[in-house]
């Protein structure tokens, strides 16, 4: 690890000021990706701004038609939330499938969404539910937030404070875990709203994406058979030592069916 300055502000404006005033500074939330990167000397920020003292960024609130999860809320809290288990059980289930117990205790929803790892679980839930990313500066719709491999719409100095999820009629998530990393080889989040269905895929390509033909088919008939015959094109899908692109394409259909099953159960 290379040396860096360490700041632990307890007010959001202070954190934002530190982040924008120190060049090459970085936020640390749960640190599940950043800390290993630092240890391998692959990143060398001048300063770390730790968000762990920002109590306002923690917790889950019921706003009626929406549920808001503070950016610093750990996965384990989301997984165990009675509110989410009742109103968006698919999202609680997704959180329960992330990593291992240590990762779920430290890792946060804001950190995961800001990092936008192409195989992370939360981006599928956020995009699949059409959530809103609330930041220190503005609100960003999920459809405009995820821009590809580790890229997001966040501006320099901008801090995610919460994610606001609309409550769907039904939602489900299914993933095939990469056996070593426990990231998604392919994960699919399916959500049914009164005005239609959203299907978001993670793990398969360079970033989370929606599958329009599946959304259309499921909007007409919300059951696994509606999408069983829908094949995903392998263009742009990832091939690596764990899974080839055509296998990932096949898994998108399989996981989508299982996500629908989960949403119906």
């Amino acid at each position: 690890m290379k040396p860096f300055a360490y700041h632990q502000p307890d007010q959001l404006p202070d954190a934002a000021k530190l982040l924008s005033s120190i060049e090459d500074s970085k936020l640390v939330a749960g640190g599940m990706t950043l800390i290993p990167t630092l240890k391998q000397r692959l990143a060398s920020p001048v300063a770390l701004v730790d968000l762990s003292r920002l109590e306002n960024l923690r917790g889950i609130t019921d706003d009626g038609a929406t549920i808001t999860i503070g950016a610093m809320t750990p996965h384990a809290v989301v997984a165990a939330s009675k509110l989410l288990q009742t109103k968006i059980p698919g999202l609680a289930a997704l959180a329960s499938m992330i990593g291992d117990p240590a990762v779920r205790s430290r890792g946060t929803i804001g950190g995961s969404v800001a990092n936008n790892d192409p195989a992370a679980d939360y981006p599928a839930g956020v995009l699949g539910l059409g959530a809103t990313i609330v930041t220190s500066m503005r609100e960003i719709a999920a459809d405009k937030f995820f821009l590809g491999l580790f890229e997001t719409a966040l501006e320099p100095g901008e801090i995610i404070t919460a994610i606001r999820f609309p409550v769907p009629l039904r939602a489900g998530y299914a993933k095939l875990k990469a056996p070593a990393s426990r990231y998604a080889l392919v994960g699919v989040f399916v959500a049914k709203f009164t005005d239609g269905v959203r299907v978001a895929v993670t793990g398969a390509g360079a970033g989370v994406f929606r599958v329009a033909p599946m959304e259309a088919a499921l909007s007409g008939n919300f059951g696994p058979s509606a999408i069983a015959a829908i094949k995903i094109d392998t263009d742009g899908l990832t091939s690596d030592i764990h899974a080839e692109a055509d296998y990932r394409a096949h898994l998108v259909t399989v996981m989508a069916k299982r996500a629908v099953d989960a949403a119906l159960s």
Binding site: P179, A180, S181, Y183, I241, H242
Partner: peptide, 23 residues
Amino acid sequence: FENAVYDEGSGQLLSGSLMDYCM
């Protein structure tokens, strides 16, 4: 689960961490 995979030509170990080498 376990498989050490090298890239032919460059000789890079592709399964060089516990994220890619499954114990």
